[in-house]
Amino acid sequence: MILLLKNISLPLADFVLQVDVELAGQVTAIFGPSGAGKTSLLDLIAGLRRPQSALIQLEQRVLTDTALGLALPPRQRQIGYVPQDLALFPHLPVRKNLLYGCKPSAPRDGLFSYEHVAAVLEIGPLAGRGVTELSGGEKQRVALARALLTSPKLLLLDEPLAGLDAALKAKILPYLARVRDEFQVPMLYVSHDRQEIQALCDEVVELERGQILARTYEKA
């Protein structure tokens, strides 16, 4: 993946998020304390917030270029987003949540087919259930699968393991590794847990008060 985040500027409550970086890792961690601007950065990449200035480019595709007045709407960005609160649609059963972003023309036996994604994340038996009936770990897997079923070019994961106890984290982490290895979709992984980052990521960008403090490379 080459994700170019150039000249990013977004005023937040206490500081201005200012990022200028080119990311090339398969899984890049955005690491930093709460309130550092991590979620705002993901929102910008997903097209959910308007920056003051930004050039955001994924591979050769320009997603946002404020200088040219260009901003692709979120639906055209082909970016799968798993927010911290997961935002599973509570009025739809699991299967309809999963199929919400599926294109009718998507191949039924491809890498991102419903059957394959459901098999990798072991969520097939959950399809008929209501979202509110799921356990924490099941919700995480369903949200991840829903994002994958859009055949994304980039996955944004906002603290996917936050709020889970250690035992559940240990259970979910292998699924994330499996997604990384099986689907080969580049990921931006927001976390403030060093262990998770070491287990999954090959690059770490450390963010504090909207500024990049350091950039390091992990051995996945």
Binding site: L48, P74, R75, P83, A87, G101, T150
Partner: peptide, 15 residues
């Protein structure tokens, strides 16, 4: 209605 639901629906390709 939590606007996050609408935002995520947009990232899933919905107009």
């Amino acid at each position: 209605v939590n606007p996050r639901f609408e935002q995520i629906a947009r990232t899933l390709g919905a107009g």
